[in-house]
Amino acid sequence: MKNPRIVVDLNKLKENIDFLTSHIKDHQDISVTAITKSFSAHPEIIELYDNCEGIDYLGDSRIENFIKNESASKEKVLVRIPMMTEVEEVVKYVDISFNSEIEVIKKLNEEAKKQGKTHKILLMVDLGDLREGIFEEEDVYTVVGQICELDNIELVGLGVNLTCYGAVIPTENILQTLVDYKNQIEERFDVTLSMISGGNSSSIYMLGQDTKENLPKGVTNLRIGEAFVLGRETAYGKDYKEMHQDVFTLTTEIVEYKTKPSYPIGEVGVDAFGNKPTFVDKGLMKRGIVGIGKQDVDDTAIVPVDSRLEIIGSSSDHLIIDFTKASDDYKVGDEVSFHIDYGSLLSCFTSEYVKKDFIK
Rank of each mutant, 00 (worst) to 15 (best):
R5Q: 05
I6N: 11
N16I: 04
S22F: 05
D26H: 10
S31A: 12
F39D: 06
F39E: 05
F39C: 03
S40T: 14
I46E: 02
L48R: 02
D50S: 03
E53D: 15
Y57T: 01
G59S: 06
G59R: 03
E64Y: 08
F66Y: 04
S71I: 03
E75Y: 09
K76L: 01
R80M: 04
E89S: 08
V91K: 10
V91A: 01
K92N: 02
F98Q: 00
F98K: 00
V104C: 13
V104Y: 12
K113W: 00
K117A: 05
H119Y: 03
F135E: 09
E138Q: 15
T142G: 02
T142L: 07
Q146K: 13
D151H: 06
I153A: 01
E154N: 09
E154K: 09
V156A: 06
V156R: 11
G159T: 02
V160D: 03
N161A: 00
A167L: 14
V168F: 11
T171E: 11
E172V: 00
N173T: 08
I174G: 07
L175I: 06
N183S: 13
Q184K: 14
F189S: 05
D190S: 10
G198S: 15
S201Y: 14
L222K: 04
V229D: 04
E233D: 08
E233C: 13
T234W: 10
D239Q: 13
Y240R: 08
D246P: 01
F248K: 07
T249F: 14
T251M: 14
E256S: 15
Y257I: 05
S262Q: 12
A272R: 05
F273R: 01
P277G: 05
D296W: 00
D298N: 08
D299H: 13
I311M: 09
D317K: 11
I321F: 10
G333I: 04
G333R: 06
D334Q: 04
I340G: 04
D341S: 07
Y342V: 00
G343S: 10
L345G: 00
L346A: 00
S347D: 13
T350K: 12
S351T: 13
E352M: 09
V354Y: 06
K355S: 14
D357R: 12
F358M: 06
I359V: 14
K360T: 09
K360Q: 13
